[in-house]
Structures are given as structure tokens and as C-alpha cells.
């Protein structure tokens, strides 16, 4: 479980995060949603330890990040997996090399043990024949799968995803969403996903945190998002005609 308590982050004169407090539960897919510029990416980078908030605290299962020593922070980071928006695969390495990289850096496993582990996680994300291909030789959806494989290869306790299905076609996007949800439940990971894709919200949003101008405007589950009267949330979530109709049908059905 990740507990965030009143964090503030500024860049120069710009106050990006203005006192956000929330919790992200273990074994659940937690979504951060909001418009572009709402502070989602900064919030996620604070959770990852890439940005240091000026105020507030972030606890990872009781361990307060700001109170950890450098060595403890390094150990904690090894328990985190991250799927970047652009996948962030190392161009100079093959798919196998990318997924093997954390194992080579932080474990003393033999090459055959590492290859076994890499084979297992690549199979888990449904990538079988791409071991020796370079990132430039595979599709965007496959790159995302490799990024997920690399993120889970060390058995992380925390998985962070920054817009994992951006740039993907709707079918592949749903496959990626479902894969993340399955992995979260299977390995009992605390997963935090940064997205503005409403399909993801409806598919896998077990807990949703809505940010607006650096403030937590609303939080709840995907079922609660249908019922909420919060105008900012409804304007954001039901901005498309399709979702407006879905909500209307839901309300009519409930009545």
C-alpha cells in the first residue's frame, strides 16, 4: 500500500501539486486521471522518487521515502517497476537484453537462470518470438509488452504505468490494460496507472483519483464515477457523446 500525505511540488513560481493526499491499495489497479497539465505526471514522478516534494510524505508499506537512507532508497527502487509512456526501452539492446537488464544489474543469477526468468516473463506478456529483435523492429504494442515484462521481471511490489496505452489501437490498448490488471492480481502488486483514457477507467479502474490543477478533486471506484455529482469529474469523464449516452442509460436503468 502506498500512502500519500499532503504533498506539494513547485517548479519555480509554478505550484504544480497543491497538497494531495490519498492511498493506493495493494492488489488493485489504481488510476490517476485528469486533463493534460493537471499534475498527473509530476505526481507519478514524485511517487517514483524522481521528483522530491517540498512538503508532505509518501509511505511505501510503512516506509517513509524521505526518511530512507540512499541505500534504502536504492533497495526500495528495486521493488518498483515502471512502464513509461514511450516504453523507454534501451535501443542498443535486444528485447531479451532489455528484460534481462535489471537482473544483470541487481542479482547474482547465472546467465541461464536469467534467460529462464526472461523467457517466463516474456511468455507471461504473450511475447514468444521476439527475444532477439531490437525495439525498433517491433510494433508499439509489442514494445509496451516488453516494457511491462522489464517492469515485472524483478517481482516488484509496486508497478507504475504512465499512459500505458497511449498511441495504441483500441483493441491492443484493452489487451494491455487487461494484462496489467491480471499481473496486478496475480502477483498482488500495488499498481498505479496514469491515464486519460476513459476506456481504461471503465475497464480496470478499481480506484480512481481525479486531479484538477494540482488538487485531488475526487476519488472513488469505477462504479462510483457513474453516480458522482462532481461537475469537474463528469465534465472530464463524460466529455464524449458515447460516454454521455452510457451514463444516461446507467441512470435510467438505476431509476
Amino acid at each position: 500500500m502506498i500512502t500519500v500525505e499532503n504533498i506539494h511540488k513547485t517548479f519555480g513560481d509554478t505550484h504544480v501539486l497543491k497538497g494531495i493526499s490519498t492511498t493506493f491499495d495493494t492488489g488493485k489497479t489504481n488510476l490517476i486521471i485528469g486533463q493534460s497539465g493537471s499534475g498527473k505526471t509530476v505526481f507519478l514522478k514524485c511517487l517514483l522518487g524522481l521528483f522530491t516534494p517540498e512538503e508532505g510524505s509518501i509511505d511505501y508499506d510503512g516506509k517513509t521515502y524521505s526518511e530512507l537512507t540512499s541505500a534504502e532508497k536504492r533497495d526500495l527502487r528495486q521493488e518498483m517497476g515502471m512502464v513509461f509512456q514511450g516504453s523507454a526501452l534501451f535501443d542498443s539492446m535486444t528485447v531479451e537484453g532489455n528484460v534481462m537488464f535489471p537482473l544483470g544489474m541487481f542479482t547474482k543469477q547465472s546467465k541461464s537462470e536469467m534467460q529462464d526468468r526472461v523467457g517466463f516473463v516474456l511468455k507471461r506478456v504473450n511475447l514468444i518470438d521476439a527475444h532477439h529483435k531490437y525495439p525498433s523492429e517491433i510494433s508499439g504494442g509489442m514494445q509496451k509488452r516488453v516494457a511491462i515484462a522489464r517492469a515485472i521481471v524483478m517481482n516488484p511490489k509496486y508497478l507504475f504505468c504512465d499512459e500505458p496505452n497511449s498511441g495504441l489501437d483500441p483493441k491492443t490498448a484493452i489487451l494491455i490494460d487487461n494484462l496489467i490488471k491480471e499481473i496486478t492480481e496475480e502477483y498482488d502488486i500495488t499498481t498505479v496507472i496514469n491515464t486519460h483514457d476513459m476506456n481504461s477507467v471503465m475497464e480496470i479502474g478499481e480506484k480512481i483519483v481525479f486531479l484538477k490543477n494540482g488538487i485531488k478533486e475526487w476519488e472513488g471506484s469505477k462504479n462510483e464515477i457513474f453516480k458522482t455529482d462532481n461537475e469537474a469529474v463528469t465534465n472530464f469523464v463524460y466529455s464524449s457523446e458515447l460516454f454521455k449516452k452510457v451514463r444516461q442509460m446507467y441512470i435510467e436503468e438505476r431509476n
Binding site: 527502487r77 513509461f84 514511450g86 523507454a88 534501451f90
Partner: peptide
């Protein structure tokens, strides 16, 4: 630019 350095940092490298 492609966040590969961020990826290294997140891994604890």
C-alpha cells in the same frame, strides 16, 4: 528525450 535515463533511475541505477 526517450526517458531511458529516467528508466535507469527508477530501477535504482
Amino acid at each position: 528525450v526517450t526517458e531511458q535515463i529516467d528508466a535507469l533511475e527508477v530501477m535504482g541505477v
